[in-house]
Simulated scan of single mutants.
Amino acid sequence: MKLYLDTADGDAWDDLMPTGLFHGITTNPLLAERAGLEYARIDWSKMAGKAHELGAKELHAQVYGPAEEYVDWAEKLYAVGEAAGIEIVVKIPLVEETIRVTPAIKALGGRILMTACYDAKQMFVAKALRTDFLSPYFGRMKEAGIDAETHLAAMEKMNRPDVRRCEVLVASLRSAAQMVTLANLGHDHFTISPDVARELLTSPHSIKAFTEFEEAISSS
């Protein structure tokens, strides 16, 4: 199982990466905006260096702007990651104009994640292009009235006969309970918000048991 921290908020990185739970960090323009960052002005060298210092093995960064500029942008991201000592995975949205430039990005030799997935049929695209990750937006799918569990179950089955997997990195999760549901369907790669991460770290019953242990020691 691999967990990723889904935020561009440096304070959340400082707080949660030291738990040791997270294999990497994922970002996108919306997450940057929520963190008060202007995506086009992000210093990716600085961001990659910080992620590496905090123990992340991967930093997922999304291409943006005109599709014809994606290859140059991806090449720069891969170089930034190599210089910082961390693997950068390039995220590409699943729309036709960006799908069409994916083979040229693939030729650069770095790993790719196809993002903004809402339908199991998009696994055919990701696997045909031999990309490394597919990221379905589970919470958004449910909120759009899509039978998210059925689509996610199909994605997992579509991986089984293939020696070369396209890892399904489930995103847009609203709770730890959703993670449990998806784990029961066979999924084991999740990128989660700081709020869901903190939910994983907290159980009232565990806190109560811990308190009782400490009280037993102090009263003996």
Score class of each variant (00 low, 15 high):
Arg100Gln: 15
Tyr70Met: 13
Glu96Lys: 14
Gly65Glu: 13
Leu129Ala: 08
Ala104Phe: 03
Asp72Ile: 14
Tyr64Pro: 03
Lys106Thr: 10
Asp119Gln: 10
Val95Leu: 09
Leu108Cys: 08
Tyr78Asn: 08
Ala128Asp: 13
Glu75Pro: 01
Ile88Met: 08
Ala74Asp: 00
Ile88His: 01
Pro103Met: 10
Thr98Lys: 12
Val90Phe: 09
Ile92Ser: 03
Ala116Cys: 09
Val125Ala: 09
Tyr70Arg: 09
Thr98Phe: 09
Thr98His: 04
Met114His: 04
Lys127Asn: 11
Tyr64Gln: 12
Thr102Ala: 11
Thr98Val: 10
Ile99Lys: 12
Arg100Leu: 14
Lys91Gln: 09
Asp72Lys: 15
Thr102Val: 12
Phe124Val: 14
Glu68Asn: 15
Glu75Leu: 09
Gly110Asp: 03
Leu77Gln: 08
Val90Glu: 04
Glu68Ser: 12
Glu87His: 06
Leu108Asn: 03
Asp72Pro: 00
Glu69Val: 10
Thr98Ser: 15
Gly85His: 08
Lys121Asn: 07
Ala107Trp: 02
Ile86Arg: 11
Ala120Thr: 01
Ile92Lys: 00
Gly109Cys: 05
Lys76Trp: 09
Gly85Thr: 10
Met123Tyr: 15
Pro93Thr: 06
Ala107Ser: 13
Met123Cys: 03
Glu82Val: 11
Met114Trp: 01
Lys121His: 10
Val71Asp: 01
Ala116Ile: 09
Tyr70Pro: 00
Glu68Lys: 15
Met123Val: 02
Leu77Asp: 00
Glu96Tyr: 09
Thr98Gln: 11
Lys76His: 14
Met114Cys: 12
Pro66Cys: 13
Glu97Asn: 12
Ile105Pro: 06
Pro93Cys: 06
Ile86His: 07
Gly109Ile: 05
Tyr64Asn: 10
Ala74Thr: 10
Lys121Asp: 05
Val101Ala: 02
Cys117Ser: 12
Lys121Pro: 00
Glu68Leu: 12
Ala104Met: 12
Lys106Leu: 07
Glu82Thr: 13
Leu94Val: 14
Arg100Ser: 14
Thr115Tyr: 04
Tyr118Pro: 02
Pro93Asp: 04
Phe124Ala: 13
Leu94Trp: 06
Val90Pro: 01
Arg111Lys: 15
Ala83Tyr: 05
Lys127Ser: 15
Glu68Tyr: 13
Ala84Gly: 08
Ile88Arg: 00
Glu87Phe: 01
Gln122Asn: 02
Val80Ser: 08
